[in-house]
Amino acid sequence: MSQEPNRNTAPLQKRGVPPWVQIMIWIGLLGLLGLLAAMLLKAKNPILAIHSTVPNFTLTLFSGSEYNNAQQVRLSDLAGKVVVVNFWASWCQPCASEAADLETAWRSYQDSGQVVFLGVDYVDTGPEAHAYMTEFNVNYPNGPDMGTRISQIFNRNLGVPETYVIDQQGILRSIQIGPFQSVAEIKAIVDPLLGR
């Protein structure tokens, strides 16, 4: 057993790895590395970049909440308007602190017809969500984030509250992580987009 052949002398045919197997191995390895790289990028930049075009989404509204007499809002239908997308949940305490401000801000723009507020209820339970909306007298269109599809568009690691402002061309212009402190803060973001 203690013989030490440096490089075995070849008794049988010493075949290397066939080229097609080699190619497959490399494809598999690079695929894996590519996947990891992509996930790493995603983990590093989980949030939709500012100035990027927001992919279309459809928000199904709560019963009792409606937009243009419809139970659904599609982002693509809102072209030409500034869209404020606010993510919230009834179990989220900071959300409660900004709820009144959002409502006030929405009312101030309501007559102009140039700004649409959308409340997206993130992984919440129905009764509590309704109680929340009643408590804070929320009247702009609100709906559940069905299957977390909308939140996944904006932020992989979404936490509530978060607010995204989209301009008339459907481009993301502002990201607010955490609650707004005042109505003025909201207006300071929306007004410039309206050219005011």
Binding site: N8, P11, L12, K14, V17
Partner: peptide, 22 residues
């Protein structure tokens, strides 16, 4: 990770036939 994986695989493929044993 990339360097480790690629180097290992490349070496292994390169020496594969030398490692062949009956």
């Amino acid at each position: 990770i990339g360097i480790t994986f690629v180097t290992s695989v490349a070496l292994l493929l390169y020496r594969w036939k030398d490692l062949r044993s009956d």
